[in-house]
Every structure is written in structure tokens, then in C-alpha cells.
């Protein structure tokens, strides 16, 4: 049986289950995505940004806070799904046995994984949209083009959620998630054009950065957030779409291999 033919719209029941848990404790869930960008903007954007006289071209007409804002949206989109589909999914799979309970019903394991990744993407969408609204409230985004950022948070969430699920299919225990976080997520957080323009990096390092999904997320977020559009945005969107499809397929296949014996 093929991986994709085992996915049905019953996946939504898994998505709904996670959504219900999320809104059950919504007060604690909405506060961090709201407060975190404010802290970052105050400390980095307006505090640290005071030290920056002028950004290198093509960003020389923007303040550092304006440059940083879309980066924060991209970072939030990455962490939302990646946390959810690593720690969150692992807890449900391994400790709570939620997956076992669900596959005893008409749902397949493929439905469960698809539902988990969709929910991860939804977390990115919720968190990053809140960040976008906060950044916009500081007057750092261009209206109305920044509204295009909102659907991109979901696409980025799908890509990072599927990527995360691959690690969840591989790790022997929950502590092993330190590796993808330390070796992949933290370097991306710092070197994907989020805090400083990629243009100032040596060319070789730039090429490496361009291979990273957060780089492309940041490119799109910044261009749409500031009202700039170019060919690069289409390429970045294509990159995120292809990554989503490949990682999603791999994640579902690897999870079946891990869980069905």
C-alpha cells in the first residue's frame, strides 16, 4: 500500500484533537508568541539597532528594527511547527500512547502523521501571525502587502513540521532532539538572514545559507513584509513547496516504518 493512498480526510480528526487541547489551555499558549517579539524588538531592534548607523545595500533605506521584524516572523514560523512535531508529537506517540489509541479506530497511521504535521503548520500559522501583527503594530511593516505573510507562515509551518517529523521518526528518546535543535535549528536561527543581511557573509557561506529552509522563509517574509517583490521570492516559495512535499512523504513513510511492526 502506498503511503499517500492511506491518507484520508479523517486526518482532520487528529488536527481537531490537537486544536482542542491547545484551546483548552489557550491563555498559556497565546502569551509567548505575543510577548517574545516585543522583547526582541525592544532589545535587538531598538536597543542594539541604535548602534547601527546604516545597513549595507540593498537595505540601506531601512532601519535595523524594520529589517529585523520579518526575521522574527520567520523564526516564529520555524519554531512553532518544529517544536510541535518533535517534542509535542513524540510525547503523544511515546508517553501518552495517543497514536496507538487513534490507530485502533478507522484512522491509519498515515492519517495520524498527516494530521500532526497539519497541526504543526497551524501552530506556526497562529504563532507567526501573532508576531506579524505585533511587528506591524510597531509600524515596521508595509500595509497591505504584509498580509501576504500570513499564508506563508502556514506553508513554512508545513515544511518545518514535516522536517521535524522525520527526526521524530528517527530519535531513540526525547533527549535526542537536542541534536537537530543544536545542529540545525539554532544555526538557522542565527545565520539565515534573520538578524543580519546575508550579503555581508563570505560568498561560500552565503551559498550554504541559501540551502537552508529558514533563509528562504526569511527572504519571502522580508520582501512581502516590506512590500518588495522579486524573482527570488518565487524561487524561495518553490523551494519551500518542494521541501514540504519531499519531507512530508519521507516523514509519513518513516513513521510507518517506525510504528507498524
Amino acid at each position: 500500500m502506498s503511503v499517500l493512498s492511506n491518507i484520508s480526510r479523517r486526518s482532520w480528526a487528529v488536527w481537531q484533537r490537537n486544536k482542542d487541547v491547545f484551546f483548552f489551555t489557550w491563555k498559556t499558549n497565546f502569551l509567548p508568541p505575543f510577548l517574545e517579539p516585543i522583547l526582541y524588538l525592544l532589545a535587538m531592534g531598538f536597543g542594539f539597532g541604535m548602534l547601527i548607523q546604516e545597513l549595507p545595500p540593498p537595505w540601506d533605506q531601512y532601519t535595523y528594527a524594520e529589517f529585523l521584524g520579518p526575521g522574527l516572523i520567520a523564526i516564529s514560523a520555524m519554531y512553532g511547527a518544529f517544536f510541535e512535531c518533535t517534542y509535542g508529537s513524540f510525547v503523544r506517540m511515546h508517553y501518552q500512547k495517543t497514536f496507538d489509541a487513534i490507530v485502533a479506530t478507522p484512522l491509519t497511521i498515515e492519517d495520524v502523521i498527516a494530521g500532526e504535521i497539519l497541526w504543526g503548520a497551524t501552530k506556526s500559522f497562529i504563532n507567526a501571525s501573532i508576531v506579524a501583527l505585533v511587528v506591524a503594530a510597531f509600524g515596521l511593516l508595509s500595509f497591505p502587502s504584509f498580509l501576504l505573510v500570513i499564508p506563508i507562515t502556514f506553508l513554512a509551518g508545513l515544511a518545518f513540521g514535516a522536517l521535524a517529523m522525520i527526526f521524530t521518526a528517527l530519535v531513540p528518546n526525547i533527549d535526542s532532539f537536542n541534536y537537530p535543535f543544536f545542529l540545525l535549528i539554532t544555526p538557522m536561527f542565527l545565520f539565515s538572514g534573520t538578524f543580519f543581511p546575508l550579503e555581508i557573509l563570505p560568498e561560500g557561506v552565503q551559498a550554504v545559507a541559501l540551502a537552508l529552509p529558514l533563509t528562504h522563509t526569511t527572504i519571502v517574509m522580508r520582501d512581502f513584509g516590506l512590500g518588495l517583490f522579486g524573482w527570488m521570492d518565487l524561487l524561495s516559495l518553490l523551494y519551500l513547496t518542494v521541501l514540504t512535499l519531499v519531507a512530508f512523504y519521507a516523514a509519513v513513510w518513516m513513521m510507518r516504518r517506525r510504528l507498524v511492526s
Binding site: 479523517r10 480528526a13 481537531q16 484533537r17 482542542d20 487541547v21 483548552f24 501518552q96 500512547k97 495517543t98 496507538d100 489509541a101 487513534i102 485502533a104 479506530t105 478507522p106 484512522l107
Partner: peptide, 29 residues
């Protein structure tokens, strides 16, 4: 699977929900 009821050896109730909500969420599957 739509016609089976399964009580597994290890309890796998959803710890995030109440008893009532457990039954409703399960029905949704």
C-alpha cells in the same frame, strides 16, 4: 476497524482531556 471496540492492555486514554471529552474526541475518529 470501524466495527471493532478495543480495550488495550495499557491504558491509552487522552490525559489532556476529561472523561467526557475523551469519549467525544474518540467518537470523532
Amino acid at each position: 476497524k470501524a466495527l471493532l471496540g478495543v480495550c488495550p492492555q495499557e491504558d491509552n486514554l487522552d490525559p489532556d482531556f476529561t472523561a467526557w471529552k475523551n469519549l467525544l474526541v474518540y467518537a470523532r475518529y
